[in-house]
Amino acid sequence: MTAAFAEPVMVFDIETIPDVDGGRRIHGLDDLDDAKVAKALSQLRLQKTGNEFLAHHLHRVVAISVVLATRDQLRVWSLGGPDSDEAELVRRFFEGIERYGPTLVTWNGGGFDLPVLHYRSLLHKVSAPRYWDTGDDDRSFRYNNYLSRFHWRHVDLMDVLAGFQMRANAPLDEIATLLGFPGKMGMNGAHVWDAWLGGDIQGIRNYCETDVLNTYLVFLRFEHLRGRLSDEGLAREEGRVANLLQASEATHLQAFHEAWLGHPPE
């Protein structure tokens, strides 16, 4: 195996909905139902910033999906189950970091996913000492930890590929599509709230899993770009993804395989 997998790699993505309970507490909206609270929060945000996208602390996590790559295995799944509450999802995420000490890989994780998880961890009293270590407990974390923007224990692909210049940021969907990967499938982030209101939590989890697959495939190209995967290594690792999809009975993973490689799994 190449140096790219000397330690586990954990690609993750979260899906969120408005934190209507938090919004009620902060803004005194007790007399409104969930849909009206969400609308009020969007309008308040629009008035304040000119954009309806809610502040990080008012996002409630409803799905966390992961690709875990090690020397011996490759898996894609969503943490917990469809009925898991937010506290369980967040706790399981940080337990994975405690257990594996992986390289985290995201697309805009530094700008969105991780700050959201920080606030939700505070809310649910989740302890994550390894994630927050900057060298006090493990000296190797002093110069390579999860929190520092220019370290490599967390690779925010959007940030890195843009040369840490916000004006050069690009959407995952467009980069994945540019590289020949499926891009967005099933829905996009703007549809998650409606899917949640309609009871389609499984659809949200499936969508999140296809997003992390896109991110992982882009990551493999990045590892090739920086010389950590040879041409043969890249082909081998992409082949591992194809084999994973071929072995799956999940319809959304089969659809991802077909959209990527042009034919359904045998």
Rank of each mutant, 00 (worst) to 15 (best):
T16A: 05
E232D: 11
D85Y: 06
Q43Y: 04
Y100G: 02
H27I: 06
C208I: 05
H59L: 10
Q73D: 13
F93H: 09
S78L: 03
L157E: 13
G28R: 14
G81P: 00
R75Q: 05
N51D: 07
I64Q: 09
A63P: 00
D85P: 05
V160Q: 09
L68S: 00
L261K: 12
V155P: 00
V67Y: 04
E238Y: 03
R139A: 15
L46I: 05
D19T: 03
G96T: 05
Q47S: 06
D33Q: 10
L41K: 02
R25M: 07
T106W: 13
K125V: 13
G180D: 07
W107R: 09
P18L: 01
M1H: 03
L89K: 05
V218P: 09
V105G: 01
L157H: 12
Q47E: 10
G110A: 13
A40S: 06
Y207A: 02
V20M: 00
V241Y: 09
R153C: 08
R228C: 08
R25D: 14
K125D: 14
E223H: 02
G101N: 13
R45F: 01
F141W: 14
H252R: 07
Q254H: 08
V61F: 04
E266I: 09
A259H: 10
A162G: 05
I175F: 07
A195N: 05
R240H: 06
E95F: 01
R130C: 01
L104F: 13
A63H: 00
D137P: 01
F150Y: 15
M185D: 04
H56Q: 13
M166H: 08
V11C: 10
G110Q: 13
F53I: 03
L157V: 10
N144C: 12
A250L: 14
A259F: 11
P18W: 05
L157N: 12
G111P: 08
I26E: 14
L172N: 07
P265D: 15
L54F: 08
E258D: 04
Q254T: 04
F219S: 02
F219E: 01
W260F: 12
R228D: 15
L114H: 09
L117T: 14
R99A: 11
D13K: 05
L54Q: 05
V20E: 07
L114D: 10
E249L: 01
I97H: 09
L229G: 12
E232T: 08
R91D: 13
R92P: 00
